[in-house]
Design a protein around this nucleic acid. Sequence first.
DNA 1: CGCTTTTGACCGGCGC
DNA 2: GCGCCGGTCAAAAGCG
Length: 201
Amino acid sequence: MENYATLFPYNSPSSTSTTPVSSHLSLNLMNDYSHDAAYSNDNNNSYDQLEDDLGFIEENLNCNSDQEIVVDPTVSPTSSGLGNSDLNSTSGSGKMINIKKGEKKIKKPKCAFQTRSQVDILDDGYRWRKYGQKAVKNNKFPRSYYRCTHHGCNVKKQVQRLSKDEGVVVTTYEGTHSHPIEKSTDNFEHILTQMQIYSSC
DNA sequence: CGCTTTTGACCGGCGC
DNA sequence: GCGCCGGTCAAAAGCG
């Protein structure tokens, strides 16, 4: 449970969001470790194919190890505060427990994506609950923090709109879902059919 | 009524 | 040591 690989290269909404998915959307896959990931969707739209597509994306992202992917300075995952929740578990009072001295801090791999979209959050089929929002330095847009609501699933994501380009939304995923998609992926398929993914490096 | 969002407070890490 | 900053918590409010 320490190797986190699954990720989905698109934004997702909070479960109650009724915001329509942008009909015109392009996505920049920003991954320092990705191969030449040029993805175009000329496949069929079956669900199995969709999962294959995701696997392909995941494979190209190569996030299945203790790696970190930096997309944008504003979402640098090297920030100290975002530790492994398995280690930084919370006490009954809800406060963070210190990691024992000498224990090496293990960071979850993170994958971040830039998405050109009218809306901040798109439907990826999972249910998310917002647990925080923070103003970000040098950015007029706040950063939102979401956690997967599935019991036992520790996946988190951050969503932030770029100040310098209001059309770009940066989503950072942390962790791997330990359960199947909970909602219809119709929206996501719709997104998949229209998005273009390419590596930044 | 249960779930989600909002938002101020709190905490730890880091730089100076 | 102090202040800044990012991340998280949790109570209150909102919503279906």
